[in-house]
Amino acid sequence: MRRTMKGETRERIASEGASDRASLGGSDSTPLRCVTCRDEAVLATVLALREAHQALVEDCSGQRALVAIDFTPEARVGDILLVHSGVAIARLDEERS
């Protein structure tokens, strides 16, 4: 059921020309998703920092998106972020793991 919805969502967003955010995590059928989140949280690597608290990120399947980094202001190029509904909510910390 989820996969169907995702297909529909992507079609719809494509047809509406909305943000490319939708594609993030799109082709990874294996979810890092949490339903507690109502959406999924996806690990993505920072490729570039952009103005207005945004970063261009790429997930493990190569999908790219612009995400808000207001809550991870320390994010730098090369960091891995946990992205949820278009917003990075955590930065992966190798030392803690």
């Binding site: 909305a18 943000s19 955010r21 993030l24 507690t36 989140c37 109502r38 808000a68 509904s85 278009g86």
Partner: peptide, 27 residues
């Protein structure tokens, strides 16, 4: 996919009312 997209929609459609139906936990 994000409430930010709903906000963008609002800015693109100033003559409409855009409502975001928010659900979810602290995430």
């Amino acid at each position: 996919y994000s409430p930010l997209d709903a906000l963008k929609l609002a800015m693109e459609n100033p003559d409409r009312q855009i409502v975001f139906f928010a659900v979810g936990f602290e995430t």
